[in-house]
Each structure stands twice: as C-alpha cells, then as structure tokens.
Simulated assay, not measured.
Amino acid sequence: MERLNFDTQIFIGENSLDEIKNYSNERICIVTDKFMVESKLVDYVTDNINDTNEYHVYTDVVPDPTVDNVVGGVADLSQFNPSVLIAFGGGSAIDAAKAMKLFGTKLGLAADISLVVVPTTSGTGSEVTNFSVITNPKNNLKYPLVNELLQPDKAILDARLVKSVPPHIVADTGMDVLTHALEAYVSTSANVFSDALAEKAIDLIFTYLERSFSNSEDSEAREQVHYASCIAGIAFNQASLGMCHGIAHTVGGKLHMPHGRINGILLPSVVQYNANESDVALERYAKIANRQGFSTSKGKVGVRTLVNEIMSLRQKLKMPASFAEAGFTKDDLAEHGETISQEALVDPTTATNPVQPTAADVKRLLTPLF
C-alpha cells in the first residue's frame, strides 16, 4: 500500500498574496535575505499583514544556508516565538525557514508554527515539499533533509515576484525544474499521480522556459514556468529524485556552483546512463520524447532525441555544457572526484534512481565533463 499526501494549500493567480490578509492576531516571522528588504520586494508581504498582527523580519539568510545559519535562525525564533513563519525568497530563504521550523520544533524552542512559503524564483519547488538542503561548509557537504515537519502549510505563487528575475537565474532554476520532473518520472517510486504531474511540468518547461529566459516582459511565460516549478515539486515530493541530484548535492558542496547549473551539466549524461542501464528508464524517456513531439521512435533513438533536445535547450539558455566550460579543470576532478563519487551513492535521492550506480560509474560519468 502507498499513501499519497498533498498537504500544502496552493494559492495562484492575481492577488494570491491577499491570502496573507486573512491572518489576524498572529505573531508572524518573515524569513528572507537582506536584498529582499533593501529592494523593497518584501513589501509585497508586509503590505498584506493587517494591524492586528505583530511581525518581525529575519534577514540573516545566506546563499546555500549553513548549519550555523539555521542555528542562528532558531535562536531568533525562540526569542520572537512566532505562530506563523513566512519564507519569502528563493531556495536559500525557503530551505533556511524550513530547517528553522524543523529544529526549532524538535528542540522545543518554538511553539507550533504554521509555515507559509512565497517563492520569488521558479526552480526548487520547495514550497510544496518536505525537503530542505543545508550546507556544512567545514566538510563541503550539502545535507538533504526529509521530514514531514518541513512540509509547508500554504504556498503562494504570485508571478509578479518572478518578473524581475535575471535571465541567468531563470536558466539555472528552470533547468532544475526539468531535472526534478524527469527524475520523478523515472524514479523507482513513481506512480500514476506523480507521472501526470511530471509530464505536465516537462510540457510547460519545454514550451515556456526559453521564452521566460529571453523576455522578462513575457508574463505568461514567467507565470507558467513558476507553476511548472511547483508542479514538479509535488511530483518529486511523491516519487523522490535520482542520481543527478545525488551527484549535484555533493558537487555543489565542493565546487560551489549554482545547483540548477550543475544539474544542467549533468542531466544529459545521467539520462543517457540510465537509459543504457535500465530498460524501464529507456522506455520512459522515449515516451517523454514522443509526448513532446521530438521523436516518433521508441527505445534508444527516442532517448537520443530527448538528450539532444535537453542539450539544445541548455545552449539556448546560454548555460555551460561541462564543468570545464564553467571554469573548472581536471585538477578539480582529481581533488574531489573520489569523494564526490562516494558521497553521491549515499545521498538519499540516489536511492530512487532507476539503476543503482557504483562509484566507478559516477566517476566515468563525470570525467568527460571536466
């Protein structure tokens, strides 16, 4: 028996931020970063908090939030004692807020908190998942946390918040969405519900991501990619992910690259590897190629066209095709390759890859990319 949970209320469309107006007599903590305050983007949230509430803005979030960053946030929570926690920002602010809630609750330093997520980028899907990723800079490791306490109560998707996102971030985060959806689709835990969501997210990315990248004024494209991110998040929250993320988490800890950019470099090679090693994955990838109209062929030809289309999209988004193009060298692989290969195997997302790789497989996949 499987249990499927869709626990987050999702608010979309025009004026979706009005949902915040419904809170009254609450203590609201907004977790964000200094840029969101300095740019006044946080006003989208604060302007909707009515006078019956008391609110506090926590701005000490750093990119790729660290263990120490979360500890500081938990201390802040224990002092303010909020009843509502609003995560406002990209993946870093959301991951930090979720981890703050988790550890604050477990340590008894914060009362029962309702978690609301308002994403300002279109990539992580974290507004609808029970995942969070925290970095340990001492060991150059990223830890994926998975816990029901990380599941947001509400997600608010307002496309106005992603209109000013720079093209390179649109590219990085959009490729992350595609990776989420494709990995959920071939996951060993995939089911008919996650399949439907993954397929729709893939449809939206191939239709709208290049448009969103090329023109920030294309409000339809920005909105649809924002929704694709959320839909892919629901899919992988049910089915989990695969070895592309397993490798990306450890590579990100070592090379300090944007997560979506790492996925963009790895994804074609991972798709090809999975298809070569798993007949089930081969069939599923070919089905996606057929669905997108890339190919009418089944099997290896269909997979090859899908890989080519991923690489073509990556080129249109002006993303690097290798770690070498991103400025890294074979010396970097020599320094970190063995550790990356080992750590990728124990990352929880690799557990649901359609085939279980060896450390040697990971190393062979990485070598041509440096």
Rank of each mutant, 00 (worst) to 15 (best):
E2D: 09
R3S: 12
N5T: 12
D7S: 09
I10C: 01
F11R: 06
E14K: 13
L17W: 06
I20H: 02
V31C: 12
T32I: 04
K34E: 14
F35L: 11
V61M: 01
V70Q: 04
V71M: 06
V71N: 08
A75P: 00
N81H: 09
V84S: 02
G89H: 13
K98S: 12
L102E: 05
L107D: 06
D112C: 01
L115R: 06
V117H: 03
G123C: 06
G123W: 11
T135W: 05
K138M: 03
N139P: 00
N147V: 01
L150G: 07
D153C: 00
I156M: 10
D158Q: 04
D158Y: 08
P166I: 05
I169V: 15
I169C: 04
V170F: 09
A171P: 04
D176H: 10
H180T: 05
A181R: 01
N191S: 09
V192T: 13
D195K: 07
L197Y: 03
E199Q: 13
E199T: 02
L204C: 02
R211A: 15
S216F: 08
S216W: 03
S216G: 15
D218V: 07
A221N: 10
S229E: 05
C230P: 01
C230F: 08
C230E: 02
A232L: 06
I234Y: 08
I234V: 14
S240N: 14
H245E: 04
A248E: 02
A248Y: 05
V251E: 00
G253C: 03
L266A: 03
P268G: 08
Y273I: 01
N274Y: 10
A275Q: 04
E283Y: 00
E283F: 00
Y285E: 09
A286S: 13
I288R: 05
F294G: 04
K298L: 06
K298Q: 13
V301W: 01
G302Y: 07
M311N: 11
Q315H: 07
K316I: 01
S322H: 10
A324F: 08
H336D: 02
A344D: 10
T358S: 15
A359N: 02
A359P: 03
L366Q: 07
P368A: 04
F370L: 09
